[in-house]
């Protein structure tokens, strides 16, 4: 038997005998590696007489191809069976999660509302939480001695100042410093001396919208509200306006959204009414325009105010407003 035949026979026999991937790799290195017999056989080519070289070369090449093919076949037949005693990763172990925090649900709700309104051309405006009576009352058409000014409805501070009881104060501050047309939203904290229970808190958040231009009407108000609520609840949202009274808007209305849980049939969420109250709205009262130096004969505008807590509580299914300020991590982590 020639050396070629001997090599083929031993190599194939050994290949057949081996049982794991590591041995297979060692076999590959031994026979097909740079210092292996195949390479060695090939090296002998230069010592042969010229006429023998082509035939010999072909034989060695054939051997090499045969062994490569046999290696591939053996690799296939061995499959992926691990070597005895090799480490096997337990894929069922829990992953090591990167540490990432979360935004507070009120922030989340607020940001969603802001994004909706920004897409409608409303710009975020901010104002102070500590206010004077002019911005919290007078300019908003709430006359002296009006019950809304009472100590049971407002937190008073020394020096004729108080904590704002509504974000409408920001309307006044923006209109004092800018000329129409303008379109703003003012999200922020407001304060009223309510005893804390499952649905009341003395500190909560509102988002206020205001648009002033030469020719705005209640149609624009209604369209804006529909776009806003469909941004939040989906395209098939249904809203209704019903008359109400607020000192700073006239005509005034309450905006209701058809209950998304019962589709208007009546359920505990909507207190069997079929509609959920979202907030107040209306056309800016001419007296408010006069207080900031806008001519009500030239400009019209609309405004609306929506409570953020109730919205967030409904959206995330939070049953008690106190959970929002307790800041238990088991609660906060649910919003990550």
């Amino acid at each position: 038997m020639s050396d070629i035949e001997t090599t083929r026979a031993t190599a194939l026999a050994e290949l057949e005998a081996l049982t794991d991937a590591r041995a297979l790799e060692q076999w590959r290195i031994r026979y097909l590696g740079k210092k292996g017999p195949v390479q060695d056989l090939m090296g002998r080519l230069k010592d042969l007489p010229a006429e023998e070289r082509p035939g010999y070369g072909q034989d060695v090449n054939r051997l090499k191809q045969e062994l490569v093919a046999a290696h591939a076949a053996r690799k296939e037949s061995l499959g992926t069976a691990p070597a005895a005693g090799a480490r096997i990763e337990d894929f069922s172990l829990p992953g090591l999660q990167p540490l990432i925090g979360a935004f507070h649900p009120i922030s989340r709700m607020m940001q969603e509302m802001i994004t909706c309104m920004q897409s409608l051309g409303f710009e975020v405006a901010e104002g102070p939480e500590i206010e004077d009576e002019f911005h919290n009352f007078n300019a908003l058409n709430i006359p002296p001695n009006h019950p809304a000014r009472s100590e049971s409805d407002n937190f008073y501070l020394e020096g004729n100042r108080l904590l704002r009881s509504q974000t409408s104060t920001v309307q006044i501050r923006v209109m004092e410093s800018r000329k129409p047309p303008l379109r703003i939203i003012a999200p922020g904290r407001v304060y009223r001396p309510d005893t804390v229970d499952a649905s009341h808190h003395y500190m909560f958040h509102q988002i206020e919208g205001l648009a002033v231009d030469r020719d705005l009407t209640m149609k624009d108000l209604k369209a804006t509200l529909i776009l806003f609520f469909s941004g939040l609840f989906g395209e098939d949202v249904d809203i209704r306006l019903r008359p109400n009274f607020f000192p700073f808007t006239e005509p005034s209305a309450e905006v209701d959204v058809r209950c998304v849980f019962c589709k208007g049939r009546g359920c505990p969420t909507c207190q069997q009414k079929g509609w959920i109250e979202m907030g107040g709205c209306g056309m800016v009262d001419p007296n408010v325009f006069k207080a900031v130096g806008y001519d009500p004969e030239v400009y019209t505008g609309f405004a609306f105010g929506i409570g953020i807590e109730r919205m967030a509580m409904r959206r995330f299914g939070i049953p008690d407003i106190r959970l929002l300020t307790e800041n238990d991590l088991r609660f906060l982590r649910q919003f990550a």
Partner: peptide, 16 residues
């Protein structure tokens, strides 16, 4: 706020 959240912090809401 994004940096804090990415660094594993949870945002709280405390009263003033």
């Amino acid at each position: 706020k994004n940096v804090f959240v990415a660094a594993g912090f949870h945002e709280t809401l405390t009263t003033s």
